[in-house]
Design a protein around this nucleic acid. Sequence first.
DNA 1: TTTCTGTTATTTATATATAATTTATAAAGG
DNA 2: CCTTTATAAATTATATATAAATAACAGAAA
Lengths: 188, 188
Amino acid sequence: MVKKEIKTFKKEIKIQNIVASASLEHEIPLIKLAEALPNTEYNPEQFPGLVMRIKEPKTSALIFSSGKIVCTGAKSMSKVKEAVDKIIQNIEKIKIKINIQPQIKVQNMVASGSIGVDLNLTSLATTLDHTEYEPEQFPGLVYKCPGTRATFLLFSNGKIVCTGTRSESKLREAVDMLVENLSKIKVK
Amino acid sequence: MVKKEIKTFKKEIKIQNIVASASLEHEIPLIKLAEALPNTEYNPEQFPGLVMRIKEPKTSALIFSSGKIVCTGAKSMSKVKEAVDKIIQNIEKIKIKINIQPQIKVQNMVASGSIGVDLNLTSLATTLDHTEYEPEQFPGLVYKCPGTRATFLLFSNGKIVCTGTRSESKLREAVDMLVENLSKIKVK
DNA sequence: TTTCTGTTATTTATATATAATTTATAAAGG
DNA sequence: CCTTTATAAATTATATATAAATAACAGAAA
């Protein structure tokens, strides 16, 4: 019985960063917020969003006057939710009442891991499609995985970085597809 | 009988600084060394090496935890050797025994002198290759002497500075080549 | 004039390469 | 005092590239 080649890869992947957005459905006076809270940075002439940093979970949020927010840095969905709650609590300190439970939408996930085998990036760049490899510019090979939102960064030691997916299931699907595609061109 | 033009140059050169490195082949506890010796300066968050100053020969040494050292300031090889011996004696004050006679490697020599003739740096900058001359930035003309490790700083009064060579013989060769190259384009 | 790019800012892993850090030294000009 | 040149040591920092939402401004193309 022939085992599928894919089984020989020791896939391993860990979510390192989640970017999520939400709308508080309420105008936010950013200047007032910036003056009231020490954990904020606001330079409207540089960027329209106010930056709010949360210690636990360690995250950073971008808050716009429209009430739209972007949360970055969390490593799990539960942490994202915790962070959003903290953000709302912070905003409510300036007497603004957020009446809704904002719907959180994951916009991007960054995960890192390994596929357990060394990769010859130079040959991969020519045998695999949808790749970009300029070692003198960046040591990783960029692979936009067809059929998925994922873009991978592949390194010669087998370490990988996956960006672009929006859920852990889609992330795992993408990694499986990456390994499958690599197997097809027999990288090992 | 036509005398060679080169003979009209009154070449003169003196070594002003020698930078040499060596390895003591022994780990050095820099914190302990800094606390025990007054002639040291150690700011690891600023620079990983400990600075040790020796009065005679007047030199300064950079000592790293790996046991690698860099000695600067000596004007002759014998002074470099004396300085390294003093450095080892200093280190042995904190009970560390350096069992070897480290092999000293000269990494750079700085020498100054004169070629005995005034130089029109502006015209030299255009007639001689491998030069850089920006008088409003620095009054000397920079000349990277092809075929040697030497880089010269040439001044309008004929004074010169030579950097980059690793031995007195190579230094003299470089100066000879400088004079020869200047003669070719008849600077006088 | 309108629309479409490209900055601006945030996070995060990955891995290369520079650059800056320190020390000494001469030269001439600011 | 600074400028410039070369040179080693080891450590930290930054730049390189990836995705994504926010939104305000810029410049450019239509």
